[in-house]
């Protein structure tokens, strides 16, 4: 199978400011179906810039980008947006959910647009299905402010899934979450990856990156390391361990109270 993402010597130079910033300096990369890639690197190393290029949110200054075999480097703005809505799903650090709008309606949001208009019923069914995938079907009519941070991020993941994308792009998806909730969200990603979705996520936490399958480390806009994850973490196991430790701690507390 051809790679889902193939970039060749891609560059991005921001020249809006006083001096041009060469944020990505010749990155070449192939990402295959069912890969789960962690993009790491210090702040300012170009992770978000590379993500924006992968997400067709920004165009490279130089280089070629084949998304699912289609050369997107030459596409018009509108064509680019169409490809983006068909093939890619986005998850952000800040969740970006509409306040005062139910979880279900938030998930439906991407269906309102795009070329093919769906019927309301079909849209609802699909959104509901995506909420089921992330384990929040029972919260469909909750407002974002009634959900925890981890649940909000899972709603955002469901929203990213609603157009049935091939690739999920997530920029620091656990950046606003505590460590336990982060593991839960990584568990959702691992499950989706099992089901055949390719995932690329930016993170600066090694603990979080360990749940991915491949590590790509950037420095000053170039890839300095690209390797498979060593002793990969599995969210289910880690969560079970956490639960065990919590139970043990409770027992211990109960025991010491009895004395």
């Amino acid at each position: 199978m051809p790679p889902v993402v193939k970039i060749e010597d891609i560059h991005k130079i921001y020249d809006s400011g006083e001096i041009p910033v060469h944020a990505v300096r010749g990155v070449s990369l192939e990402i295959h179906h069912k890969e789960f890639l962690a993009l790491m690197g210090a702040s300012g190393s170009g992770k978000s810039t590379l993500m924006n290029l992968l997400g067709c949110l920004d165009r490279p200054t130089r280089g070629r980008y084949l998304l699912d075999g289609i050369d997107v480097s030459e596409l018009e703005k509108n064509e680019l947006a169409d490809i983006r809505n068909q093939k890619l799903g986005f998850v952000f650090q800040g969740f970006n959910l509409l306040a005062r709008t139910t979880a279900l309606e938030n998930v439906e949001l991407p269906c309102l647009y795009g070329k093919e208009r769906m019927t309301g019923k079909k849209m609802r069914e699909r959104a509901m299905y995506c909420l089921e995938i992330v384990g929040l079907a029972n919260r469909a009519d909750h407002m974002p402010n009634q959900l925890s941070g981890g649940q909000q991020q899972r709603v955002a993941i469901a929203r990213a899934l609603v157009n049935q994308p091939q690739v999920l792009l997530a920029d620091e998806p656990t950046g606003n979450l505590d460590s336990k909730t982060s593991i839960e969200v990584m568990g959702v990603f691992q499950k989706l990856n099992e089901q055949g979705i390719t995932i690329v996520m930016v993170t600066h936490e090694l603990d979080v990156a360990r749940y991915c399958k491949r590590h790509l480390i950037l420095r000053d806009g170039v890839v300095v390391r690209d390797e498979p994850t060593q002793d990969r973490s599995i969210a289910e196991i880690e969560l079970a361990k956490l639960k065990e430790a919590e139970t043990a701690a409770k027992l211990l507390a109960a025991g010491s109270n009895a004395h």
Binding site: L57, N78, A81, D82, R84, N85, F90, F92, G94, N96, L98, R100, L109, P110, L112, Y113, G114
Partner: peptide
């Protein structure tokens, strides 16, 4: 919220949808 406006633009929301679904509320 700028992020939400960008989200709407990313999904190619029309100006009118952006107005009624996002800005007015």
């Amino acid at each position: 919220d700028r992020n939400l406006v960008e989200l709407f633009r990313m999904y190619r929301a029309r100006r009118l949808q952006e107005l009624w679904l996002l800005r007015v509320p």
